[in-house]
């Protein structure tokens, strides 16, 4: 199954808000299911959730053109993935080890991708996907595709890597249409930002690279849509790389194994700790974009879609060692 291309590429205003909200909702429900399957012992490997980051992620996903742009997700981008066109069966199959999923049991969980369809499959070494997106954009430039934009998702912790620095500098030198989406969720695993970097705001780094910087309240879907819309448009118009830093809080552990007891209670009570999904839901009601009945209907549809995908994946065949092709090279 290819990535779905059901929705029109560019939605604006209220339609875009509703679309992004529904991807956030679907991602939240899917991750709740994945989390409970993990705690029931049905999933092997790590489970990393995007709770609290769905607005930032989905807003980027809906700002890109499906199958035409590049979207490189990181571990908390279920919402952005779905918004960019990843079928819900992909996470279901990958988490449950189905041989029919895109990784066929060879790699798991958040490592899934569809690199031939503009969504690279991340490796674990943080920062190292940014330059890969640069290369995908260089290839498109060689082909004469001057429309394409590429987005690389990353967290506050990965901005400390040499890989991140090298790639952002390279993108700036090549003036690539790259959007670097930094979800500053205040913790890299357990390490708070004051042990990660000493600058006042990560967005200030844009000045040093000679690129545009944008800061955004990552808990506010409307603001995320506006900022990512502007960043993507500027990248597409030839204005070079765009660094977007979202302020938010990870509303979950680093992984499903982590109770995050190191996150101070007081921090959770600040504006950073607001749940973006709840805020978006209230926004829809306040602005008359949806009724309570519609919101409940969308939720039921999301839950149903999740159940269907998981049930399908659970019936799928799993990889068999005897039938595996144990060759890492395609030529020999």
């Amino acid at each position: 199954m290819a990535m779905s291309d059901v929705l029109p590429s560019a939605l604006a205003g209220a339609d875009q808000y509703v679309s992004a909200y529904r991807w956030m909702l679907l991602a939240r429900r899917m991750e709740e299911k994945i989390s409970s399957l993990y705690h029931a012992g049905k999933i092997v490997g790590g489970v990393y959730l995007g709770r609290g980051q769905e607005a930032f992620s989905a807003a980027l996903g809906v700002s890109l053109r499906r199958r035409k742009d590049v979207f490189s997700p990181l571990i908390r981008d279920m919402a952005g993935r779905l918004a960019f066109g990843e079928p819900l069966l992909d996470p279901a199959r990958t988490y449950l080890g189905s041989v029919l999923g895109p990784m066929r049991g060879r790699d798991g969980n958040i490592h899934r991708g569809r690199p031939a369809e503009g969504m690279p499959a991340m490796i674990s070494h943080l920062g190292s996907m940014v330059s890969v997106v640069c290369g995908m954009l260089v290839a498109r430039r060689f082909r004469g595709d001057v429309e394409a934009v590429g987005a690389a998702c990353i967290g506050d912790g990965a901005t400390s890597t040499g890989s991140f620095h090298e790639a952002v500098n390279l993108a700036a030198v090549e003036k690539l249409p790259l959007v670097i989406a930094v979800a500053n969720n205040q913790f890299a695993y357990s390490t708070p930002t004051d042990r990660q970097f000493a600058c006042a705001d990560l967005v200030d780094r844009a000045i040093g690279y000679g690129i545009d910087g944008h800061r955004v309240d990552g808990t506010d879907l409307a603001e995320c849509l506006e900022v990512f819309g502007r960043a993507v448009a500027r990248a597409r118009a030839g204005q070079g790389p765009q660094l977007v830093v979202g302020r938010l809080l990870r509303l979950t552990g680093h992984g499903a194994h982590d109770d995050a007891n190191y996150v101070p209670e007081a921090l959770k009570q600040t504006e950073l700790g607001r749940d973006c999904l709840e805020r978006a839901r209230q926004h829809l009601l306040d602005h008359g974009l949806a009724t309570v009945a519609e919101l409940e209907q969308w939720d039921r549809e999301a839950v149903h879609e999740v159940q269907l995908a998981v049930a399908t994946a659970q019936k799928d065949p799993v990889p068999e060692a005897a039938g595996e092709d144990w060759r890492a090279l395609s030529s020999f």
């Binding site: 690199p115 031939a116 690279p120 190292s128 996907m129 940014v130 330059s131 890969v132 997106v133 640069c134 290369g135 995908m136 954009l137 260089v138 290839a139 498109r140 060689f142 082909r143 040499g162 890989s163 090298e166 790639a167 500098n169 390279l170």
Partner: peptide, 14 residues
């Protein structure tokens, strides 16, 4: 060197 290779990988994938 890290970004050079990453860039080449992205281009090769495409």
């Amino acid at each position: 060197e890290d970004a050079m290779l990453g860039m080449a990988i992205g281009a090769a994938i495409e």
